[in-house]
Amino acid sequence: MTVITDGVVCAPRAGTLYDVLDLILDRGIVIDAFVRVSLVGIEILKIDARIVVASVDTYLRFAEVCNRLDLEHDATSRTVPELFGGAGAGAGAAKSAGKAGAKKAVRSVGEKVKDAVPGHHEDGDDDSDNGGDIGEEEPAPRRRTGEGSRPRSRRRSEED
């Protein structure tokens, strides 16, 4: 299996398993007469993804970013970071808020599962013995914290 990620236009990914988790869990052949492992936790994650993304938090964050846009003085700017670049006092705080929030709404279910699985945040954990029992996770409380919802490597580099 290979994953092609263009450095410029495609989001970099730590692994490939979670990018196709929906295929492994929801596609493929099921034979009625055979037993299938319970995947209750996975359903919870899917529902949770919808709740979080369409939240009041998201709206307020969008509003804050939009209210800070200086369209008249920066007509060519295309990105949130650029828009905050020349904003003067308070720009630092606005920048981190805008950027920290900017990725939150674009999480996939795969990423959410990835976050919910213990030990997945760092590379090289593939052979950890328990490997994260998705079926027994209770991801909802963790979701609500927001901070725990993003891949850590990405967060680290953004806050530099």
Binding site: M1, T5, C10, V20, L23, R27, G28
Partner: peptide
């Protein structure tokens, strides 16, 4: 479509979605 979406392609994969029971 840079301004609207990021694309993520995974594969080649086993044909999970085209295996009909």
């Amino acid at each position: 479509h840079t301004g609207q979406v990021t694309l993520q392609v995974t594969g080649p994969l086993p044909c999970y979605s085209f295996a009909v029971a």
